[in-house]
Nucleic acid binder design. Structure first.
Lengths: 241, 241
DNA sequence: CGTTAATTTGAGACCATTCAATTTCGGTGG
DNA sequence: CCACCGAAATTGAATGGTCTCAAATTAACG
């Protein structure tokens, strides 16, 4: 489905953020990059690390996380193919959190300098990249709301809505079903719950016929019901841009 | 302390984000703006609203929030003088959340177009503004961790650390004491707790001699203790940039 | 096909919530 | 200057959602 050999997934994504010209598209495709493979649970970026490359997912899933002093982990976002996992580091120059692969990942490592040269030279590409970092921020805001004020059922429903929505948008769905390699422990760390309670809550969503979730595969059986359960409104994803 | 008559607080802030030239500073100070006053609890920006101006706080405090369907409120960030409350809207063009004043606020309303013209013309100013939006995003990430994985005591301690740290940085402290117009209900909505439990938890922080918090005034009595209680590490504020 | 990871189940404990009432504080007008 | 008022802070007691700990079952994988 998605091309994993060049940066065309990025062109497609950024085309939705700004009105790119053919030259802009060509310039993005001309970005230098090296391909890099990561096994399951590998660290792609570490907190405190200086940035040399920005990492785009060609294949696989990744997530960002922070560790607390007591060893607790909070997952901050999930990332799917065609997304950068650390775009802000290209501008800030240093990572303030960790990024890990969720399963086997194929990444395109784009040198920070080449990326910054490109966006400095091309204002429309710059706008697209800036919008990308701002949509990231909008998602973080929604996650604050999610873990701060929703109960366990809504939290999980909301998270599943978001992921299904984003997966659908990149064409990763096969008729309402998605590859979904998240463990319940990872869902727990993303929603601020425990794995045990996540399990019970997922059962409740299944029992109500909203989702089907088994071994690496998610199907949304009742979109309307899941949206309502999760109090989901996609405005924050700025899809229409 | 802070000048409330021109945009020099913004110049001071952005000078920490990028190496601005005298011309850059002059161009920022030359930005057109209108002053606007907001009473307590006034809406400065509403979700879904198209952006015409970006709002910088000259005096007073503000906060961003989202409302849930059931009427619950989650506060997403607090803002203090010298900060924009909706900078990302200058790029995105539409608000995805609400912004309200916390007390009486004096704002500088900068036309979106003038701001975008400036940053398109001046790459260093642009970097400073971009960094500003990215630090925002970094704070949201830390808040996800805060409400997701810390207990009530740590949450509140962390929030107080962040605010004291940021207030100190703009020179708003009077020997460890700060104007602090947040009600316990607002602290609760920011930490994902109830007002009642926030009250009890604040008492515990007071009892342990970490803070003094009464009627609009916060003093940090034991910085080290408060940092530890809140698991606070200021890396995410990218202060050193 | 054995071994480890992931999911599922049960029961008890606890942190935070809910609801309600009381006290304190800040501001206002007489 | 004091009486009054509404907002904010505080207290108590009961409830409940989520956690903890532990064990059992199932799925994934070399």
């Amino acid at each position: 489905m998605l091309n994993t050999h060049d940066l065309s997934p990025l062109v497609r994504r950024w085309s939705k953020h700004a009105d790119l010209s053919d030259e802009d598209r060509g310039a993005i495709l001309a970005l230098p990059f090296t391909r890099k493979s990561f096994g399951k649970d590998a660290y792609i970026v570490r907190e405190g690390q200086e940035t040399t490359d920005c990492s785009l997912i060609l294949k696989g899933f990744a997530y960002r996380q922070k560790l607390l002093r007591d060893g607790c982990r909070q997952i901050i976002s999930f990332h799917i193919p065609s997304e950068f996992v650390d775009l802000q580091n290209g501008v800030l120059g240093m990572a303030d959190h960790n990024v890990q692969s969720l399963n086997r990942c194929e990444m395109a490592m784009v040198p920070r300098s080449a990326l910054m040269d490109l966006v400095n030279a091309r204002s429309t590409v710059r706008l697209a990249m800036w919008v990308d970092t701002l949509i990231d921020a909008s998602i973080f805001r929604e996650w604050v709301v999610n873990v701060g004020r929703r109960d366990s059922r809504s939290r999980l429903a909301h998270l599943l809505c978001e992921l299904a929505f984003r997966l659908e948008r990149i064409g990763a769905d096969k008729g309402g079903a998605f590859d979904f390699p998240l463990t319940q422990e990872q869902l727990a760390d993303a929603t601020g719950l425990t794995a045990v309670h996540t399990n019970r809550t997922l059962q409740s969503l299944r029992r109500d016929g909203l989702i089907q979730l088994t071994s690496g595969n998610l199907s949304v059986l009742d979109w309307k019901g899941l949206r309502e359960a999760g109090d989901f409104d996609e405005l924050y994803l700025h899809h229409q841009l």
